[in-house]
Design a protein around this nucleic acid. Structure first.
Lengths: 161, 161
DNA sequence: AGCAACAATCTCGACATCAAGAATCTTGAC
DNA sequence: GTCAAGATTCTTGATGTCGAGATTGTTGCT
């Protein structure tokens, strides 16, 4: 199989440190580098709908939660792996763009609820469709049984981190 | 196999969009999320040696290039996937910490060469060892033949992005 | 030689993130 | 009921990155 960036990196290390076992890099560096390339691809896919990746992250968490597309900031923090300060800022900007609304939580006066507007829903649905199209193209490089196996192995790994 | 975060996300989407093929997420979302968890793990591993991940990225590119551990900023940009402005800033701060030095390129007066100091070399070697230790622990969750197969599949995917 | 295109690095301002802590409200133990 | 501990959201300052453009030097064409 033709070597890639990571093969070159591991080879270089091996020249310098012949006695060290570098095999973990073959998997974990590859995942990290792949993720960075995927980030760029996602950004490009969303650009067609004037959506930033961070916007999609928030909107999609609301969208997939189902009607009435309404979650607390704390819940959004948990879904998106960012800090609470970041989420405050994100919601502020999405409100400015008219894609979400903030309202008081009737059951807890500390609380706030963030909900998708109609515009937000249209945007997130279009962006998802675009994204899935690009992703299917990338995955066309793998036979479907190999993709399924890959997903399983990654699940095992995810549990180990 | 026990479900993970991504299974929950895909299930939620499937409830909302029963007719859409979401299988690409099983692979690509998993890679992205895994990469974010790995970033945190790497940060924690490096903290023991007072190194930030961005510092390690630069130092390790120099280290694996071999003696005299010297590369141009442009080359470092290519190795680390950041912009030139970012690299200028990174090198500045590494110079402040005494981990690298800047010198003029004798062959091109526009050019600069960045080289590892003795302190830089000690730091990067220690950080690498620490990192590999943690990575081996993570990968212990997979039989070694499955890890090798995973690396191969990821290589194919990388070429497709 | 002179000039235009290109290359390498750095500068600068905008932006998004995090970490820590403040402000507000809830809950449970007594 | 009161109070301490915890939960929720927001604020603030520092940090690191990007993108666009400025600066300086090189190369090839004429």
């Amino acid at each position: 199989m033709a070597p890639d960036e990571v093969d070159a990196i591991v080879e270089a290390w091996q020249r310098e440190l012949p006695d060290v076992d570098l095999s973990p890099m073959q998997v974990l560096s590859r995942i990290s580098r792949l993720a960075r390339h995927l980030d760029r691809a996602r950004k490009a896919a969303f650009a067609a709908h004037d959506v930033e990746p961070w916007e999609f992250d928030v909107l999609s968490a609301l969208r997939r939660s189902g009607a009435p597309y309404r979650l607390s900031p704390g819940r959004l923090v948990a879904e998106t792996m960012v800090t609470s300060g970041t989420m405050t800022n994100r919601v502020d900007r999405l409100v400015d763009r008219g894609l979400v609304e903030r309202s008081a939580d009737p059951a807890d006066r500390r609380g706030v609820l963030v909900s998708l507007t109609e515009a937000g829903r249209r945007v997130v649905d279009a962006a998802l469709e675009e994204l899935l199209g690009h992703e299917r193209a990338i995955l066309a490089a793998l036979p479907s049984d190999e993709a399924a196996r890959l997903a399983d192995t990654l699940r095992t790994l995810a549990r180990s981190v």
